[in-house]
Deep mutational scan, measured.
Amino acid sequence: MSDQEAKPSTEDLGDKKEGEYIKLKVIGQDSSEIHFKVKMTTHLKKLKESYCQRQGVPMNSLRFLFEGQRIADNHTPKELGMEEEDVIEVYQEQTGGHSTV
């Protein structure tokens, strides 16, 4: 019986991991920090939209990076291997420009 009891508790931990929340720091170019608590399985588009709304800027005017890689709207913290207190960097999107060649 103890084996049966242990097995469901392991499964519960697996389920808990799926719905687990982590805190992420979003740091802007001006070094301002906003902290977000997100589920591991939530699409990061929600975090990006919330950040842009707080900053009063359109979402397409900023780019969000985690460990140097651009974050897509459909990425989740779990897919990117994010952990508690990880940092997302935000930069002004640069458009235009010309070749110097």
Rank of each mutant, 00 (worst) to 15 (best):
residue 62 L to S: 04
residue 24 L to G: 03
residue 97 G to P: 00
residue 78 K to T: 05
residue 47 L to V: 08
residue 19 G to R: 14
residue 79 E to M: 14
residue 94 Q to I: 08
residue 65 L to C: 04
residue 41 T to E: 04
residue 59 M to T: 14
residue 25 K to I: 08
residue 63 R to N: 08
residue 6 A to G: 15
residue 18 E to H: 11
residue 33 E to W: 01
residue 86 D to A: 11
residue 30 D to Q: 07
residue 64 F to H: 08
residue 80 L to F: 01
residue 85 E to M: 15
residue 78 K to I: 14
residue 62 L to T: 03
residue 91 Y to E: 07
residue 59 M to W: 05
residue 84 E to S: 13
residue 2 S to W: 12
residue 46 K to M: 05
residue 51 Y to C: 03
residue 84 E to D: 11
residue 4 Q to D: 04
residue 91 Y to I: 00
residue 44 L to Y: 06
residue 53 Q to H: 14
residue 69 Q to M: 01
residue 17 K to I: 08
residue 69 Q to F: 08
residue 60 N to Y: 06
residue 55 Q to P: 07
residue 64 F to K: 02
residue 21 Y to A: 07
residue 61 S to K: 02
residue 68 G to K: 01
residue 10 T to L: 13
residue 55 Q to E: 12
residue 32 S to C: 08
residue 64 F to A: 05
residue 37 K to T: 04
residue 48 K to P: 01
residue 19 G to K: 13
residue 9 S to M: 08
residue 21 Y to L: 08
residue 72 A to F: 09
residue 58 P to K: 12
residue 45 K to G: 15
residue 86 D to P: 04
residue 38 V to D: 04
residue 19 G to Q: 10
residue 36 F to L: 03
residue 68 G to H: 00
residue 81 G to H: 15
residue 38 V to Y: 08
residue 71 I to R: 03
residue 29 Q to E: 00
residue 31 S to I: 08
residue 69 Q to N: 12
residue 70 R to S: 14
residue 29 Q to T: 06
residue 79 E to T: 03
residue 91 Y to D: 06
residue 29 Q to G: 01
residue 82 M to G: 05
residue 40 M to A: 06
residue 23 K to T: 10
residue 80 L to Y: 06
residue 25 K to V: 10
residue 41 T to Y: 00
residue 39 K to A: 03
residue 40 M to V: 13
residue 68 G to C: 04
residue 42 T to D: 06
residue 52 C to S: 10
residue 9 S to E: 12
residue 83 E to A: 14
residue 14 G to Y: 15
residue 48 K to H: 00
residue 22 I to P: 07
residue 49 E to S: 14
residue 73 D to N: 05
residue 61 S to Y: 14
residue 44 L to W: 02
residue 54 R to Y: 02
residue 69 Q to I: 03
residue 88 I to P: 03
residue 96 G to S: 07
residue 59 M to F: 14
residue 4 Q to Y: 09
residue 27 I to A: 01
residue 66 F to C: 04
residue 36 F to Y: 09
residue 96 G to K: 01
residue 62 L to D: 03
residue 63 R to D: 00
residue 3 D to G: 11
residue 95 T to N: 06
residue 72 A to E: 03
residue 45 K to I: 13
residue 67 E to W: 10
residue 94 Q to Y: 12
residue 79 E to W: 07
residue 50 S to E: 07
residue 93 E to R: 09
residue 5 E to Q: 13
residue 71 I to G: 04
residue 33 E to D: 04
residue 11 E to W: 04
residue 60 N to P: 06
residue 15 D to V: 12
residue 14 G to E: 12
residue 92 Q to D: 07
residue 68 G to E: 03
residue 45 K to D: 09
residue 52 C to L: 02
residue 47 L to G: 04
residue 74 N to F: 13
residue 77 P to C: 13
residue 34 I to W: 00
residue 32 S to A: 13
residue 56 G to H: 15
residue 57 V to I: 14
residue 15 D to K: 10
residue 83 E to T: 15
residue 61 S to M: 07
residue 88 I to F: 04
residue 41 T to I: 09
residue 88 I to N: 02
residue 72 A to D: 09
residue 53 Q to P: 10
residue 77 P to E: 05
residue 24 L to D: 02
residue 63 R to W: 13
residue 2 S to R: 13
residue 39 K to M: 00
residue 7 K to R: 12
residue 76 T to S: 09
residue 31 S to L: 01
residue 77 P to G: 02
residue 14 G to R: 11
residue 70 R to F: 05
residue 66 F to P: 02
residue 88 I to R: 03
residue 4 Q to C: 08
residue 55 Q to F: 07
residue 10 T to P: 11
residue 6 A to L: 14
residue 96 G to I: 01
residue 90 V to W: 01
residue 46 K to D: 06
residue 54 R to V: 12
residue 20 E to T: 01
residue 94 Q to V: 13
residue 43 H to P: 13
residue 89 E to V: 09
residue 28 G to V: 04
residue 49 E to D: 07
residue 30 D to H: 07
residue 41 T to C: 03
residue 79 E to G: 12
residue 29 Q to L: 11
residue 65 L to W: 00
residue 45 K to L: 10
residue 26 V to C: 12
residue 53 Q to E: 15
residue 90 V to E: 02
residue 78 K to F: 15
residue 93 E to I: 04
residue 3 D to V: 08
residue 91 Y to K: 05
